[in-house]
Design a protein around this nucleic acid. Structure first.
Length: 113
DNA sequence: GGATTGACCGGAA
DNA sequence: GTTCCGGCCAATC
């Protein structure tokens, strides 16, 4: 099958298609994406995003606890601040990207699928 | 065909 | 709050 020629597999295409339909200011967790598609798993979705995610709004796919994608916290935070995604309130004065999380109870996209 | 990797998840300590 | 661990599954070697 595909995969060696730089083209996404059919599972990867499904992940990318769903990711591209997440509304601005909303998010899905990696596990949510797999659940909506009805195939694969959270880790497999992460694998696809790492390999093919550059063309879609990848920052709208986050961890189930609201943490931003590992290794991409800075870029993701900038995007979310720009589009008004609900974030958890921080108490201290210092704002570090690593400590920022999505408020999943408010930001999760519930109309998916 | 098998082994390893990883932008994960949920529970346990 | 944290770290650790087993399970998970597509992509990659």
């Amino acid at each position: 099958m595909r995969g060696r020629d730089g083209l996404p597999t059919s599972f990867a295409e499904d992940v990318l298609d769903l990711s591209s339909r997440i509304p601005q200011g909303r998010v899905l967790s990696y596990g949510d994406v797999a659940a909506v598609l009805g195939s694969g798993g959270a880790r497999a979705v992460g694998t696809v995003m790492a390999r093919f995610g550059s063309d879609v709004p990848w920052w709208r796919v986050v961890r189930s606890d609201g943490h931003l994608p590992a290794g991409h916290e800075r870029e993701a935070l900038a995007r979310h601040l720009a589009e008004g995604t609900p974030l958890v309130r921080r108490r201290g004065p210092t704002i570090v990207a690593r400590d920022r999380r999505i408020d999943m109870s408010r930001a999760r996209w519930t109309d998916a699928g």
